Amino acid sequence: MEVRTIKVFTTVDNINLHTQVVDMSMTYGQQFGPTYLDGADVTKIKPHNSHEGKTFYVLPNDDTLRVEAFEYYHTTDPSFLGRYMSALNHTKKWKYPQVNGLTSIKWADNNCYLATALLTLQQIELKFNPPALQDAYYRARAGEAANFCALILAYCNKTVGELGDVRETMSYLFQHANLDSCKRVLNVVCKTCGQQQTTLKGVEAVMYMGTLSYEQFKKGVQIPCTCGKQATKYLVQQESPFVMMSAPPAQYELKHGTFTCASEYTGNYQCGHYKHITSKETLYCIDGALLTKSSEYKGPITDVFYKENSYTTTIK
């Protein structure tokens, strides 16, 4: 009895394709271990004539594949690729409408935090270190965002349907971005203890939790000093293409032309909904596939993004 075979390709990165001759009487799992086709788990399936010449994702289970996976995804987590594939199996079914010149995501599976993050990423200057993220990001900007969303979920250790947080998501993504040249110098002034300067680099240099107003941050924000008295913390120097200011959701007025974009969060910790506000020729609110415009805006804002380049204080 002759062994019926077909020729397929296996890959971990969709760049390096490895030619395989597979036995049609055995499952993919018996031949390769966990195997995925377009995100779908085909591990328990036997090869079919229609699979001839198709590319299958496999887990990096030998040295060659491990090197290829690390170079593309910059992670050695053995569960990463499987999590990416199972997320992709959902995100490829989502709709990605162009809204006001940006790629958004039609609401499904509690994905409003991903839509808000995706919209924000198209408006701030950011370059990702893992080629996987950078490639998928370019495709997302062009309207094909399924891979990018699935990668975000995998890097953030999230599953489809789980509630997510924009600030946490951005923080994970910033860790995989090139923020080497970003720098922030802060000064804390206390009447009792004097003053202390701190220099922050990388992710810490672009994120701040405690106030939404970048102007206020430049002037000074009140913080408790270690001595128990009130101290003032203010920005001395900022070198970065953008800054992200966050605070627990509270009524906040966004003035046209003073910011790049913002995240609105309605609801409580267990259950809520994100919308995205962007400042173009007027203010726009993007909620999944829905767009509304207004000249002014007041609502429960939790993150505001500002364009920056270089700032030095005039406070002496």
Rank of each mutant, 00 (worst) to 15 (best):
E2R: 10
R4Y: 14
K7Q: 12
V8P: 02
V8W: 00
V8I: 11
F9D: 05
F9I: 09
T10V: 12
T10G: 05
T11Q: 01
T11E: 00
V12Y: 08
V12S: 07
D13V: 01
I15T: 08
L17H: 11
H18Q: 08
T19G: 11
Q20V: 12
D23S: 13
D23V: 12
T27K: 11
Y28W: 14
G29W: 07
G29R: 03
Q30P: 06
Q30T: 02
G33L: 01
G33C: 00
P34S: 03
L37Y: 12
L37H: 13
D38T: 08
D38W: 09
A40T: 11
D41Y: 03
V42T: 06
T43L: 03
T43H: 08
K44V: 14
K44Q: 14
I45F: 10
I45Q: 10
I45G: 07
I45S: 13
I45L: 09
K46P: 12
P47C: 02
H48R: 10
N49H: 15
S50M: 12
S50G: 11
H51G: 00
G53Y: 11
F56L: 07
F56V: 08
Y57T: 08
Y57R: 03
L59P: 14
L59S: 13
D63N: 15
T64F: 08
L65N: 08
E68P: 04
E68L: 14
E71N: 15
E71Y: 11
Y72K: 12
Y73M: 01
Y73W: 00
H74K: 06
T75E: 14
T75K: 05
T76P: 08
T76G: 10
D77Y: 00
P78Q: 08
S79N: 11
F80A: 01
L81N: 00
G82E: 12
R83P: 00
Y84L: 03
L88S: 01
L88R: 01
L88V: 03
N89K: 13
H90G: 12
K92R: 10
K92H: 05
K92L: 11
K93F: 09
K93M: 05
W94L: 00
Q98I: 03
V99H: 08
N100M: 15
G101M: 02
L102A: 05
T103H: 04
K106T: 10
W107F: 07
W107S: 09
W107G: 11
W107R: 15
A108E: 14
D109H: 04
D109N: 05
D109I: 00
N111M: 04
N111D: 01
C112D: 03
C112I: 00
Y113K: 02
L114Y: 01
A115R: 07
A115D: 05
A115C: 09
A115P: 03
A117V: 14
A117E: 05
L118H: 02
L118N: 04
L118P: 06
L118A: 04
L119I: 03
L119C: 07
Q122T: 02
Q122G: 06
I124N: 02
I124C: 08
E125L: 03
L126C: 08
K127T: 10
N129T: 04
N129M: 07
P130K: 02
P131F: 01
A132D: 00
Q134W: 03
Q134F: 04
A136T: 05
Y137D: 02
R139E: 10
R139Y: 08
R139W: 14
R139C: 10
A140R: 01
A142L: 10
E144V: 06
A145D: 04
A146L: 03
C149W: 06
C149D: 05
C149M: 10
A150Y: 02
I152C: 06
L153E: 03
C156G: 06
N157A: 05
K158S: 05
K158V: 04
K158R: 15
K158Q: 05
K158M: 00
T159Y: 14
T159S: 13
G161E: 01
G161W: 01
G161R: 03
E162G: 01
L163P: 15
L163I: 14
D165A: 15
V166Y: 11
R167M: 05
R167F: 14
T169N: 03
M170F: 09
Y172Q: 09
Q175R: 05
H176Y: 08
H176M: 12
H176C: 05
H176K: 09
A177F: 06
N178G: 07
N178L: 04
N178P: 03
L179V: 06
D180M: 07
D180V: 07
D180S: 11
C182N: 00
C182D: 08
C182R: 03
R184G: 10
L186A: 15
L186Y: 13
L186C: 09
L186D: 10
N187I: 10
N187V: 11
N187Y: 07
V188E: 00
K191Q: 14
K191E: 08
T192S: 12
T192Y: 07
Q195W: 12
Q195G: 10
Q195A: 15
Q195D: 13
Q195V: 12
Q196D: 09
T198W: 13
T199Q: 13
L200S: 12
K201N: 10
K201E: 14
K201S: 09
K201Y: 12
K201V: 04
G202W: 00
V206D: 07
V206K: 07
M207S: 10
M207V: 02
Y208L: 06
M209L: 10
M209W: 13
M209I: 04
T211M: 14
S213N: 11
S213V: 05
S213T: 08
S213R: 11
Y214N: 06
Q216R: 04
F217M: 07
F217P: 06
F217N: 08
G220N: 08
V221Q: 06
Q222Y: 04
Q222R: 13
I223H: 14
I223A: 13
P224D: 11
P224A: 13
P224C: 12
P224T: 15
C225Y: 02
C225P: 05
C225F: 03
T226H: 14
C227Y: 04
C227E: 01
G228P: 00
K229D: 13
Q230C: 06
A231N: 02
A231G: 05
A231R: 06
T232K: 08
T232M: 13
K233Y: 10
K233N: 13
L235D: 04
L235P: 07
Q237R: 12
S240C: 03
S240M: 01
P241N: 12
F242K: 08
V243S: 05
M245S: 04
M245R: 05
S246W: 02
P249C: 09
A250W: 05
A250I: 15
A250C: 13
Q251D: 15
E253C: 09
E253G: 06
L254E: 06
L254N: 07
K255W: 07
K255Y: 14
K255N: 07
F259A: 05
T260N: 10
T260G: 06
C261K: 05
S263R: 03
T266K: 04
T266F: 09
G267D: 13
G267F: 11
G267P: 10
Y269F: 14
Y269K: 09
C271M: 12
C271I: 10
C271H: 15
C271F: 13
G272M: 07
H273S: 06
H273T: 06
Y274E: 04
K275D: 03
H276W: 15
H276M: 13
H276T: 04
H276K: 06
I277N: 01
S279L: 02
S279Y: 09
S279W: 02
K280T: 09
E281N: 08
T282H: 12
T282P: 04
L283E: 13
C285F: 07
G288D: 06
A289F: 01
L291D: 06
L291Y: 12
T292A: 10
T292R: 12
K293P: 12
K293E: 10
S294Y: 14
S294V: 15
S295M: 14
S295V: 13
E296Y: 14
Y297T: 05
K298L: 11
G299C: 04
G299M: 06
G299L: 06
G299W: 03
P300N: 15
P300K: 14
P300A: 14
P300M: 15
I301H: 06
I301F: 04
T302P: 04
F305Y: 04
Y306W: 04
Y306C: 07
K307H: 11
K307T: 14
E308W: 07
E308D: 11
N309P: 13
N309S: 14
N309V: 13
Y311S: 09
T312M: 13
T312Y: 15
T313D: 10
T313G: 13
I315R: 13
I315N: 13
I315Y: 15
K316Y: 13
K316S: 13
K316T: 15
